[in-house]
Write a protein that binds this DNA or RNA. Structure first.
Length: 234
DNA sequence: AAGCGCCTCAACCGCATGGGA
DNA sequence: TTCCCATGCGGTTGAGGCGCT
């Protein structure tokens, strides 16, 4: 960036910084539709925007791109973020791939907010225990102390839901925007180091979690119970 | 009404990565 | 193989909004 700024300065141009104006957005939109969402330096140059290519790319990806979702993260999305963050850590871009319309920036920002909230809750002595890895990324680890965790099926049975129902294809996210994505992910995952069994079980469980997100309260330990057994799966 | 603190989110920064010469 | 450049990614910052006192 310093190099870009320096290069612009050498050419006698000063790069715009700060919030984008409406006319800048329109200009960027126009040139991206003409030239595609590649070659950002070129787009920045030919559009006349006094912005770096990087800045143009960011603006496009995080705001102007079609099908971007603005607004609140749903409970369902939140749980997916939690699950994926637990598995992958701060791989925001990778997590964002699993949430159509959400950007890595959205998720990153959301996680910071979420994290802060959880830490505050923890300080207040909430039973929701999140242990943070020392020196590593900030992925929360669900406490498993006491060895008292039930399997997800056990939990379902406790809640009077048959494991059959939880395991059938009918159980999936029929009303969820993630319905098709999940099957895509499973096939995608199948190419990753023979992890297909793991992911089938993982997504089957995750689908169940998502499907029941209406009745599983935010504070329920079902999510953690479910994920604990999954993350420990070999 | 004013001041303050907290929260959210857009944008920036710097490093990593990949591809081409 | 090495270098250079564009792009991608994750961490961080700061402006503005909002609620509380």
């Amino acid at each position: 960036m310093a190099r870009e700024a320096a290069a612009a300065a050498m050419k006698g141009k000063k790069l715009h910084r700060g919030p984008w104006q409406e006319d800048e957005d329109e200009l960027l939109n126009t040139f991206v539709s003409l030239l595609g969402s590649q070659r950002w330096d070129f787009i920045a140059r030919v559009s006349g925007l006094k912005r770096s290519g990087k800045s143009c790319r960011l603006r496009w990806l995080n705001y102007l791109r079609p099908n971007i979702k603005h607004g609140h993260i749903s409970a369902e999305e939140e749980q997916i973020i939690l699950q994926l963050h637990k598995r992958w850590g701060n791989k925001w871009a990778r997590i964002a791939e699993r949430l159509p319309g959400r950007t890595d920036n959205d998720i990153k920002n959301y996680w910071r907010t979420y994290l802060r909230r959880k830490v505050q809750v923890q300080k207040k002595g909430d039973q929701h225990e999140f242990l943070f890895e020392k020196g590593g990324n900030a992925a929360p680890q669900c406490s498993n102390e006491g060895g008292n965790h039930k399997s997800f099926v056990d939990v379902l049975e406790t809640e009077n839901i048959s494991s059959d129902a939880a395991g059938t294809s009918d159980f999936g996210l029929t009303n969820s925007p993630y319905e098709t994505r999940i099957s895509d992910w499973i096939s995608e995952f199948s190419g990753e180091e023979g992890e297909i069994k793991y992911h089938h079980e993982y997504w089957s469980c995750l689908e169940s979690c998502c499907h029941y997100s209406d009745w599983i309260s935010e504070d329920s330990d079902i999510w953690e119970t479910c994920s604990d057994s999954l993350w420990n799966m070999d």
